[in-house]
Nucleic acid binder design. Structure first.
Lengths: 201, 201, 201, 201
DNA sequence: TATGAATGAGACTTCATTCAT
DNA sequence: GATGAATGAAGTCTCATTCAT
């Protein structure tokens, strides 16, 4: 690897590091309650240097969404590639989603509390599915394979999509709010069964 | 009605007016992008006077959530009181929810974009279901009546709750984002069928 | 005068006060070396309040130019209204210009060091003669009356304009730079004679 | 030429290249709106290296003025050395000045918009005529030769100086502002005639 | 020489809230 | 109750300059 390529790689590494910290802070405190100096401080770098990597707070937030979406999509892809029934895949999807929400809550929270909420920030490059395309694609694959195998009804994609993400996201949100009576894991069976019932052929 | 009560009534009337405008602005521009002077200007009143009615921006936001929740709950209550099957009630619920989202989008958007998003604002009086209790209660009634009549499975409340609100909220959000291929009304059947399938006995 | 009109007047008074201070500071230290907090401090008011009167530093600079141009134009107008020869008027013009430059140097310096120099600031509303129109108009009157009376050659306005303002502005600038060997007043005769010779019939 | 001298020459070459680019950028965008990184980028070199040639932005600006003044002085010198009447020399001076302003506007603009405007930058080495001495000298020569030949009045140098530079600079400025009604060349005759009239014996 | 990441002080601007009238 | 000028802390972003490589 040439000197040039090495530097480029180091730069990407640093950007990733910034994205990770920003994701956590944004998700925890909210977009407008997280300041650039705070992010810089947490990273042990200066504000000025932070701006050498991302031209604005908004751009940083967009990059975070893009990257976080990729991380989540990876897990989903692994599930899609397994050789099991769609019913089982849905169960695994719920387990995986809950597990992310417990171990890396910033990924889900970033989506729920930053991306879904502060739409104005994501104008200009992140509208609609633009920055979460990878996750959407995996859900799409899950659904179309299920239909192909005759296990799922052939229905409108968007309806199916919200019938999966809605309940999962909802229960994770309620868990974050502390209103659930039992630990999140307890809801794996009931939520995945409801999703399955909603979609099955 | 005495002079005292009359004044009290006028005051309540004015507060309601403020809440309505604040709900719309908060829902449209987001909590942090709406300033108190803007709200005052939209109302044709001074900032100082605005503070005579609400002690802080946060308190205003909480009151908005409480009031908006009441408005939505009213519609749901009407549905609950109808004498039809649970399946039909679910359909009516979806229709009603979509209709609110189209005619008074600020009610739903306030929930999605302000309440769900800026949790820090609602600390101290609006945690969990505290400010949306009326809506939650109506969903509870819908579910328990359905179970009573043997039309719905007897399952965990929270799971059932997100199986209803998740898909409805999700599709409305996507509609707001402009990613749906067809008008919102088109999704009434598919969404309500999915919800019904998820919950039915 | 009604309460409303009174307040309006007070507000205009305050704006004028701000303009005066800003003119002096901008002219002395330069546009980019004068900060809004400095202006506010000099005025004994808060930055925030300063922004209640002018929406941005640029707008403030434009308003200063407009106002300062008016002040200078007033003096020129008085000269134009006198009943003397054009030669004498030119002499008075030079005297008046020098006198302003000595007693209220910020007026001339603002023009020389802020307006002529930082063109980017005055884009959007102050291009060309837009903010100094009053001064230009008075020069125009001086010239056309002189031509009418047969005392001045009938020549291109722009050429005549720079033949007046160029030497006057130049000598005042050099005086500010401290390179002149004698006090400014000493140059009244020579400068006005040169201008007269340049323009006379 | 020894290795040492060669290196020295290369270094001077590079400095000149930097000065040219800096002159253009400063003149176009203004001193405070041109950043050192921008200059470096335009030159295809790194900021760090730029600082190997000039110790600070201010020093660079001063060197630019010195160099640009030399370039302009060269043209004037050629005129001074011609064997024509002073009247003709003044005409040639105007033509030359206008021509520079059209073909290399950065030279004149640098003077008008950077040097005249941002006096604080040129403190410490460039006060008064210190960095434009060469141009001043040529004007001086033009004037004293004219007096010697009996073609010009023997008058105060500073007055004569501004009677030449003022109108020329003024019309070029107006041209840059886009307020002139005709192309710059059109003003050669009228401006040089006015200057001549102002100075002639 | 050459690179460009890193620094950090400081600029402009915003806005929830107060308070004299 | 009603007004809106006033406050000042805090936020985003810039940029001349340095320094390890």
């Amino acid at each position: 690897m040439g000197r040039r390529a090495l530097k480029e790689k180091e730069r990407e590494e640093k950007k990733l590091q910034i994205v990770r910290v920003a994701c956590r802070l944004f998700a925890t405190r909210g977009y407008y309650n997280t300041t650039m100096p705070e992010i810089a401080k947490e990273l042990g770098m200066s504000v000025g240097n932070l701006y050498n990597y991302f031209p604005s707070k908004e751009e940083l937030a967009k990059e975070v969404m893009l990257t976080a979406s990729g991380w989540v999509a990876e897990r989903l892809k692994a599930i899609n590639e397994e050789n099991t029934s769609t019913r089982e895949k849905i169960r695994k999807l719920v387990i995986s989603f809950f597990s992310i929400s417990l171990k890396e809550p910033e990924l889900i929270d970033y989506f729920l509390r930053v991306f879904l909420a502060n739409r104005e920030v994501f104008k200009g490059g992140c509208e609609g599915f633009a920055c979460v395309g990878e996750v959407v694609t995996e859900i799409m694959v899950l659904l179309s394979k299920g239909v192909e195998k005759g296990e799922l009804r052939n229905q409108d994609f968007f309806t199916a999509f919200v019938s999966i993400m809605g309940p999962m996201g909802g229960i994770v949100f309620l868990n974050g709010e502390g209103v659930l009576e039992k630990p999140l894991e307890h809801y794996v069976d009931s939520v995945s069964e409801n999703i399955w019932n909603a979609l099955k052929a």
